[in-house]
Design a protein around this nucleic acid. Structure first.
Length: 419
RNA sequence: GGAGAGAUGGCUGAGCGGUUGAAAGCACCGGUCUUGAAAACCGGCAAAGGGGCAACUCUUUCCUGGGUUCGAAUCCCAGUCUCUCCGCCA
């Protein structure tokens, strides 16, 4: 969310800073609402002052006047609330401002590649897709998931289930022991307010799974990413500067409706309603956001280096970035069967955008309260890492070599074979 | 599911109709003392919003929403959350 005080200072600059996003927004309306809102506030405050003075004077002859003032205040307040709600509604639907580094562009075609890393495997046979490999091994079962649940779910079985668990544990261990993240096992449900804090709500409600609880308590949602719950750890807090940076890592299931991607990636486990993801979240001083983004991205790519899986790094253009991000790197892994790179991680700096929504603040070196910077990134998507291992480590006979770093997590198993 | 207790500033915690934005302690900042640090002592220290170039000033806020009153942290009603005990279940 944006700070109206800052927008107000230079309205045109604000308008311009959002150009890269290519959104349609009635800036004049916003401006007018803000003006009207402040006028009403002033009116109200003057009346409140008058009323307060009467009450302080304890002068009985003025008491009836005070009552009249009260009713005027009520009227103005009602009016002001309407304006304020409209203002908030508009504000909470405006995405974050792209950083200067961000290339302009409309969609994923305008993203810019930064570099390719690792060696793509050369096969003397036709590379199979992960779902063929998994089916042949008898360890990926989509039909069974359809039977018990529905489309876009999968049963991972036997040694592949072990592999999935190994990937998750391996990533957690690296991030905890080498990268300095604190491991968290969080709730998988988030309150409506938490979902607002990180920017999933109100705009993207259609992508979320809502869970109905018995009572009429606050709405709850299955987390679409652990980012939601990890970032909200600091909501409504004023942190001591000494505590920063905070770095959290969690491996959790994520749930997404994938509304709007009907017919996209319907085969295999690229795009599921449920998937495991190891998520990294950092809470930092806002000036350190971009440095932290580089660091976090290195933590993510470091995993792929260790797994010896080829990947490339790209920077997202303004039109392709997520709602809350100011700058995003995507990491894409090489998938031999598709002969292209596919997203496996997305690391974003959200500057103070989420912090303002969450009211997450810290005391800076001048002892003033100010908003923290938040970052999140996948480190990495576990399901897609499984896919990448399957495809890049496949052998002619359909067996899968286990990457060396994962073997300690799999009783030193070197290979997954049919039977 | 049954029975209680509570929700106050960064934290702990008093206040229970009228200078209470709120005692006290901790934390934090400045000063005295000290070779330096610690201790001790003195002083400062809430947030959000509005106006002003600024010094500054005004309003709101003691879980949320209503109500009583000229006036509410304090009284009444409704709700949310947290904790304790009992029961039940992982």
């Amino acid at each position: 969310m944006h700070d109206l005080k800052i927008i107000r200072k230079d309205f045109d600059a604000f308008k311009k800073s959002l150009e890269k996003r290519s959104i349609d927004l009635d800036f004049d309306k916003l401006k007018n609402l803000d003006k009207k809102n402040r006028e009403l506030i002033q009116k109200k405050e003057n009346l409140e002052k008058e009323k307060k003075d009467i009450s302080k004077s304890k002068d009985k002859s003025l008491f009836s006047k005070s009552k009249e003032i009260s009713s005027s205040i009520d009227k103005i307040t009602a009016q002001q609330n309407l304006i304020k709600d409209e203002l908030n509604h508009i504000l909470s639907n405006i995405p974050n401002i792209p950083h200067n580094d961000v290339p302009s562009g409309k969609n994923e075609n305008d993203n810019v590649e930064i570099g390719k890393f690792g060696k793509t495997p050369k096969f003397d046979f036709l590379a199979k897709s992960h779902f063929e490999l998994g089916k042949n091994l008898g360890m990926l079962d989509f039909d069974l998931a359809t039977k018990t649940t529905g489309s876009r779910f999968v049963f991972v079985k036997n040694k592949l289930a072990l592999l999935e668990r190994a990937i998750s544990s391996f990533m957690l261990d690296i991030h905890v022991s080498k990268n300095g993240y604190e491991e968290i096992s969080p709730p998988l449900l988030a309150s409506e307010n938490s979902m607002f804090g990180t920017g999933q709500l109100p705009k993207f409600e259609n992508d979320q799974f809502e869970v109905k609880l018995d009572a009429d308590v606050e709405r709850k949602f299955l987390i679409p990413t652990a980012e939601v719950i990890l970032t909200n750890i600091v909501k409504e807090q004023i942190l001591d500067l000494k505590r920063l940076p905070l770095r959290f890592v969690a491996s959790t299931p994520c749930f997404r409706k994938e509304a709007g991607s009907y017919g996209k990636d319907t085969k295999g486990m690229i795009r599921q309603h449920q998937f495991y993801k190891v998520e990294l979240v950092s809470i930092v001083e806002p000036e350190k956001c971009l440095d932290e983004l580089e660091r976090m991205t290195k933590c993510a790519t470091g995993i792929l280096d260790l797994l010896e899986i080829p990947y490339r790094k790209i920077i997202l253009c303004g039109g392709d970035m997520g709602f809350s991000a100011e700058k995003t790197y995507d990491i894409e892994v090489w998938l031999p069967s598709e002969n292209k790179y596919r997203e496996i991680s997305s690391c974003s700096s959200c500057s103070t955008f989420q912090a303002i929504r969450m009211k997450a603040r810290y005391r800076n070196d001048k002892k003033e309260t100010s908003y923290v910077g938040t970052l999140n990134g996948s480190g990495l998507a576990v399901g897609r890492t499984l896919i990448a291992v399957l495809e890049n480590y496949q052998q002619k006979d359909g067996s899968i070599i286990i990457p060396k770093v994962l073997r300690p997590y799999m009783n030193d198993l070197e290979k997954i074979s049919i039977n």
